[in-house]
Design a protein around this nucleic acid. Structure first.
Lengths: 255, 255
DNA sequence: CGGCGAATTGACGGACGTCAACTGCTGTGG
DNA sequence: CCACAGCAGTTGACGTCCGTCAATTCGCCG
């Protein structure tokens, strides 16, 4: 509907669509529409049938999983990124809910059109497979992070990753509310507070959303971060050495 | 090298290759070779460059992740299944180690050939994307399982899944050593023992590797299993309703 | 028969979740 | 303009879950 040409350009710049032919791009965006949602809107519930590939153009979206009135944050997405690609490819139901954390602008692409285009355009199929591979590897990292590290260690590594992504400044800014960060890291808000307190002896000073790392090497020794778990890569639309591409998702390669 | 035609047939029966054209199949298996490994062989270490797609034809393979002299089991694979597909697609290094638990027969397909075939054959590219989507969704389930449930709850759900997969018999057989099961479920062997003991009051009786569920509905009430986390699907070469396909991996859609 | 490793059990300590109280900020309405 | 409600964040107390260490039993294979 209300689609500015600049919106399409931003979509085309995504790794998923960067190398696509003009015809295929026309096909895959056929019937697409842009939609605006207020903060706190549930876009998708676990178990829902998924008919569209979502492309976040503006705002923030949280993906979460639920079980027995408990829920956990699986990822926090920022523009520009796609989500629920896997469910769309399989035409299956969603395994996670999606809700906006801020007013968001989302482009919705027909799942049918996407699957049809994959069949017609091998290059696009490859791009989808590469995207999914990056997402898969992000999740492998997440599982290792969860199963092998304790809460404080997860936080320490999170801080180091943020430090690198925010350009090695001495003080970094937490990109979301602490309660969401806690859920993302797999702990309670209370425990996150205590974990921050515990890192004080390692040169971590917290002032609201600002965190100053006075002695990074000391923190690093505790964290023992490794590329086999932590994705230190700079944010935004990256292309790695061997053609590895990932839609950016704030914490962990995802979507 | 020593490749029986029947081996190729079993590969071709995999969801990944089922709908592939004969020419593409010839391309993707060009230069492939079969290799036999004794039990306990490390096939691949975390961080290694990955040059081949592995196809387990016989035996058992464990995938594990490591950090700071601790390690955790990410999956246990049985024939016929592929593994490290994502790393092959991206031509990246491995995020998990692979080692044989028993004497195994493994077919190794050239990663280059696979990527080339994806580019040439859109249908095959789609199959790869579908496979990766299934793996991705398996990992989403794994993360939710880890973050939302306690150890005993994970065990209860594991038992229920096994009960279904083994045909609703009253007594099931644990498919691996308890220490590996413990690692897979994200706990220590000691804690797994205690978790089994704790389930005694829910009708779970353990005799070595045999577990009898005397009151399944009681166990079910504790477990609260859900298709959004647990993959109850019957094992072996399955094709779901909407074309969802997954290589089988014993516990969780994987590879 | 002896030995090795898997599995179990107990005792203990640390990590984490829960409940509650308190602080500080923000936005709202009198 | 100020009072107050509401929510995020923090802190403390407490209980539970879980990992660690050690000792013991069991089964399997040499």
């Amino acid at each position: 509907m209300t689609m500015r040409p600049t919106d399409l350009d931003r979509v085309k710049a995504l790794p998923l669509f960067r190398k696509i032919s003009p015809e295929s791009f026309r096909d895959v965006t056929a019937g697409a529409f842009l939609q605006r949602f207020p903060a706190g809107t549930t876009l998708l519930m676990e178990g829902d049938q998924v008919d569209f590939l979502y492309v976040l153009l503006d705002g923030i979206v949280e993906l979460q999983g639920t079980w027995k009135e408990k829920d956990t944050t699986l990822a926090v997405l920022r523009p520009v990124s796609t989500f629920i690609l896997a469910a769309v490819v399989l035409d299956a139901d969603a395994l996670m809910s999606a809700r906006t954390l801020e007013r968001s602008e989302i482009l919705m692409l027909s799942g049918q059109a996407l699957r049809r285009t994959m069949r017609q355009d091998a290059e696009f199929g490859l791009a989808v497979a590469e995207e999914l591979s990056g997402c898969y590897r992000g999740l492998v990292r997440t599982v290792k992070n969860q199963k092998l590290r304790g809460g404080t260690e997860r936080l320490a590594n999170y801080l180091i990753t943020q430090r690198i992504r925010q350009g090695l400044k001495e003080t970094i800014v937490l990109p979301h509310e602490k309660r969401i960060l806690a859920s993302l890291l797999g702990m309670t808000p209370e425990n996150l507070s205590r974990a921050f307190a515990g890192l004080a002896s390692h040169g971590v000073v917290v002032h609201g959303p600002e965190v100053t790392l006075t002695r990074p090497e000391l923190l690093e020794r505790l964290a023992r971060s490794t590329p086999l778990i932590d994705n230190h890569m700079p944010p935004q639309s990256r292309v790695l050495g061997k053609g590895e591409v990932e839609s950016w998702s704030e914490e962990t390669g995802f979507a």
